[in-house]
Amino acid sequence: MFDPKPFIRTVPDWPKAGVQFRDITTLLSDPKVFRQLIDAFVHQYFDVEFDAVVGIDARGFILGAPIAYELNKAFIPVRKKGKLPFDTYEESYELEYGSAEVQIHADALAPGQKVLVIDDLIATGGTLEAACKLVTRSGAQIVDCAAIIDLPDLGGSRRMRELGHSVFALCEYEGD
């Protein structure tokens, strides 16, 4: 399995002191490595039955669209509030300092459809949980939640499993 860690830059004390920011732009900027990244997800889900990839704004779009293309699935964006032009479902979630909202088009998914939800990173799980709530409100079913990076110390992947969702990540950063 492809290990993305050697290609991820860690930026200390950003956006605030004490945070070790995991920067995936270095992973995406190398064409061969970017292909290996997408291929790793394609191989993970090649034999899984599902209908659509739901990508979370904005890095989930970078991953989700080429994965959906390679697997011949639909791509459905979950956007930050105010970015979708038609009827939407919306879900609030908590941030470290305040709250935010994400939306999905109300007609983007049909009841019974099976989806893969993807983002770049799982930290506290707030954004991922909000996206999953939008998917289930649409009547669709989540087959898996995926990310490049899991930060298990922040509890997001545990939180998602407690909510009944399986989680896949290509790498983890624990205690650092």
Rank of each mutant, 00 (worst) to 15 (best):
I122K: 03
L27W: 05
A131Y: 15
V11P: 14
D153A: 13
V102R: 04
P31Y: 02
I149Q: 06
T10H: 10
R161H: 08
A74R: 15
G112W: 02
V143R: 01
Y97C: 08
L170C: 03
A106Q: 15
D144Q: 11
D3L: 03
I118C: 04
T25M: 11
E172K: 01
D153N: 12
V167A: 14
A108W: 05
E129T: 15
I24Y: 06
A17H: 08
V11T: 14
S29Y: 11
V11R: 08
L37D: 02
Y93I: 07
L28F: 15
D153L: 11
K16L: 12
V53A: 09
A131V: 14
Y89E: 11
T26H: 10
K83N: 08
P15L: 12
A40H: 00
F21H: 05
A131E: 12
S29D: 14
G139S: 07
D150T: 04
G126Y: 13
D47I: 05
E101L: 15
G82L: 08
D51L: 09
Q141P: 00
V53E: 04
Y69E: 04
L134K: 01
D30H: 07
I38K: 03
V135R: 10
D13E: 09
I118S: 02
Y173P: 01
R35N: 14
F86S: 10
I122F: 03
G125L: 05
T10I: 06
Y69W: 13
P6W: 05
F7K: 07
D57C: 05
D57V: 00
F46V: 13
P15W: 07
M1R: 11
T127S: 14
T136W: 05
F86V: 14
